[in-house]
Design a binder for these strands. Structure first.
Lengths: 144, 144
DNA sequence: GAGCAATCTATGCACCTGCATCTAATGCGT
DNA sequence: ACGCATTAGATGCAGGTGCATAGATTGCTC
């Protein structure tokens, strides 16, 4: 691996960081000011809202696709529960686990916040994010 | 803008988040355990190390290409100075400004840490990050 | 079924971040 | 020279995050 390509890689990474942080920041502010939730919280609400049939997921499964650590997720869901957006309940078949279920209020908030998120992605991310995102997936860039 | 393409956009964004956070997390841990600095700190050291001729930048200019707020940068540089990696000095021509200059120790640490960062980018980012990164830039995805 | 490793969630702790604000210094218009 | 808006950086504060660990429960092995 040549020094040159390493530097190219570093430049690409730096560029990605800049763009990612900007979009992420705009998204956070939009969701926070309009609906009082953070981007991470929105992601969790979305995950639950897309879960059939009852908008319920074990904490551990929720963590599988989350972008935060287990401890952060635990507190994040605790916040959502305190706000009445999510209900936590002990798993009957495995009492170590906890079910997180979206409340009606949580579903309402998600549905209200989704257009905000989508608009930011359109405005900040641009139409081509989808294509590039697909390219990311297709090429396996950043892949494990 | 159709609902379908909005959802594609959201999926692409979610995918990007996953990959970005994973690489970012691995990078942070590698730099922290091996050299005792965070990814943000490395980025600042790199910015200064690449500045000719004297590895010196005004705080404000340093912030131009940083991925953190002004307040975070102020504290970040304060930490680097406490560790002897950076020296802060009042600007003579504009006494509001502050020069941040990389110390020899800071340059040494950057040079030692760079291979670690490059290796993580190669391993985690994969060879294709460079190509995809360029695609990002070329297509203007995530662009302002 | 007793012992023990593994799994799942919660929490103490330290640290980093952003927001709002403060102080200091500069530039500008009169 | 004066007043005032602007700019640069530092800091109080509240809040979110990761790491390490604790507490509870389950599964596995003998």
């Amino acid at each position: 691996m040549s020094r040159r390509s390493d530097d190219d890689l570093a430049r690409a990474w730096h560029e990605l960081m800049s763009r990612y942080h900007r979009v992420s920041c705009v998204l956070d502010r939009a969701l926070q000011s309009t609906h009082g939730i953070s981007g991470s919280e929105f992601a969790v609400l979305e995950q639950l809202a897309e879960t059939r049939p009852d908008n319920t997921l074990r904490m551990h499964d929720l963590g599988e696709h989350a972008h935060v650590t287990q401890s952060a997720l635990s507190r994040l869901v605790a916040r959502l529960e305190a706000d009445g957006l999510v209900h936590r309940q002990m798993c009957v078949d495995d009492r170590r686990s906890v079910w997180a279920r979206l409340t009606p209020a949580g579903l309402d908030l998600y549905r209200a916040a989704r257009p905000t998120q989508r608009e930011v992605l359109r405005t900040e991310g641009g139409d081509c994010l989808a294509a590039v995102g697909s390219a990311f997936v297709a090429t396996g860039a950043l892949a494990r």
